[in-house]
């Protein structure tokens, strides 16, 4: 088998709940060793999508192949080849770390020496050895996430699904978690991760942004950032920021003004000419005796891109 066979391949994946279309003909491709990010607001369809890809929810229409197995036809065989880390801790709080791992190992058919070997590996690799006899519910959140990841890795899956793996985890633990994710990707595991942290989205090799059940943008973070923004953003330094904000808020060219890191970020409406607005800013500053710096076009961040894309699709 060559390396370019995707470990996740979903085509025209659709799920309806009654009249409501939770996921609407999406395509997802994840290669071995790739970290793929699925982004979107709550209710955009991420969780429904991931549940179908993991075989927990049958799709209304579409095809899913995961690790070379048809997830719709042979869900149980396919599930044996994937690892899944749920959004909230869903292992057993009243079992110890190693009891939880033993249970998972048994469920994946690992027994005897093989089971012991994998348990030792998982405990060591996720730095849980010291806590192996602790009750899972007594673990700090970051450790619970690691335990969940350890449980998902025991059977050496070829695909890993991480549903909001770092929400609620402190920044240090988040960083450590991402290091682990990269190590796993380096070992050739295909990883699908959902997140709503924009900085984490940048860590992904490729991204898809979901809205109302559809994928509305996709590409590498670089590709997405290089897209010209339909709604340009001007950054402006000013000691009179608050007064200027009040003044410019009502301008027809301005979509919104957001104070950001000591600056004003002025997002213009689609199709506005930035130089005209810059001239207008200077004129207004003179007229109202405000001190303003030189406005310049902002380098878009991923969030800007997504906000622009989402607005475009809402319209």
């Amino acid at each position: 088998m060559n390396d370019t066979t995707p470990v996740i391949l979903a085509e025209d994946l659709t799920r309806r709940f009654g009249d409501f279309v939770a996921v609407d003909h999406i395509h997802v491709t994840v290669q071995p060793g790739e970290v793929f990010g699925l982004l979107g607001a709550n209710g955009a369809g991420k969780t429904t999508a991931i549940r179908m890809l993991c075989g927990m929810l049958p799709p209304t229409a579409g095809r899913i192949r995961v690790a070379d197995v048809d997830m719709v036809q042979h869900a149980r065989r396919a599930r044996g080849r994937i690892g899944y880390v749920a959004q909230r801790f869903s292992l057993y709080g009243d079992l110890t770390v190693s009891e939880n791992l033993k249970l998972q190992a048994g469920l994946y058919g690992l027994t005897g020496a093989r089971q012991r070997e994998r348990l030792i590996w998982a405990l060591a690799h996720l730095e849980l050895t010291d806590r192996k006899d602790a009750m899972a519910r007594a673990l700090p959140l970051g450790y619970q996430r690691r335990l969940a990841l350890a449980a998902a890795l025991l059977h050496e899956p070829r695909v890993l699904f991480l549903d909001e793996p770092t929400s609620g985890v402190d920044p240090m633990a988040r960083q450590r978690f991402w290091e682990l994710i990269y190590e796993l990707a380096d070992d050739g595991i295909g990883i699908l991760v959902t997140t709503h942290y924009m900085d984490e989205a940048l860590f992904c090799d490729r991204l898809s942004l979901m809205q109302a059940g559809r994928i509305v943008a996709e590409g590498t973070p670089d590709e997405l950032l290089r897209q010209p923004l339909p709604t340009p953003i001007l950054e402006l330094n000013s000691p009179d920021a608050a007064r200027f904000e009040q003044l410019a808020q009502t301008w027809p060219e301005v979509r919104e003004i957001v104070p950001h890191a000591g600056q004003l970020r002025i997002r213009l409406r689609a199709g506005m000419d930035t130089s005209t607005v810059i001239a207008k800013i200077h004129a207004a500053a003179v007229e109202h005796k405000l001190t303003v710096g030189v406005p310049h076009l902002a380098t878009p961040e991923l969030e800007d891109v997504f906000v622009a894309v989402l607005e475009e699709h809402e319209a």
């Binding site: 993991c54 075989g55 927990m56 149980r76 065989r77 599930r79 044996g80 994937i82 899944y84 749920a86 909230r88 869903s90 292992l91 057993y92 998972q104 469920l107 994946y108 058919g109």
Partner: peptide
């Protein structure tokens, strides 16, 4: 608790 759904992701 969601442990059932988690269990059913395994074989």
């Amino acid at each position: 608790l969601g442990t059932l759904e988690r269990l059913l992701v395994t074989p």
